[in-house]
């Protein structure tokens, strides 16, 4: 499997560390109630198909939101998490 790092281009999966669905970026504020907070942290769409998830490119230190497919393993794009959040 090969993924896309916006800094480094297409690289082997061995260079990356995975961290699950990009839903994790939508961190609620501390004013949000505990149940909603727990749901944010634990419940997942977990799609069979298109998904966006978090990958850390170990050599360059970039956190990347990768758009890919969980059924075909097609990889469409990679965006810097810091850009996605802006």
């Amino acid at each position: 499997m090969r993924l896309i790092c916006p800094h480094c281009g297409e690289r082997d999966r061995r260079e990356f560390t995975y961290q699950g669905a990009a839903e994790i970026l939508d961190r609620p504020s501390r004013e949000v109630g505990n149940d909603d907070w727990a749901d944010y942290l634990h419940l997942r769409e977990n799609p069979a198909g298109e998904t966006k998830d978090m990958w850390y490119h170990d050599p360059c230190g970039a956190w990347i939101v990768v758009h890919r497919d969980t059924v075909t393993h097609a990889v469409h794009s990679g965006e810097l998490a810091s850009e996605v959040r802006k």
């Binding site: 978090m54 970039a62 956190w63 810097l80 998490a81 810091s82 959040r85």
Partner: peptide, 8 residues
């Protein structure tokens, strides 16, 4: 992760 993803 925190620096880039949560607190850019």
């Amino acid at each position: 992760f925190v620096a880039q993803g949560l607190r850019p």
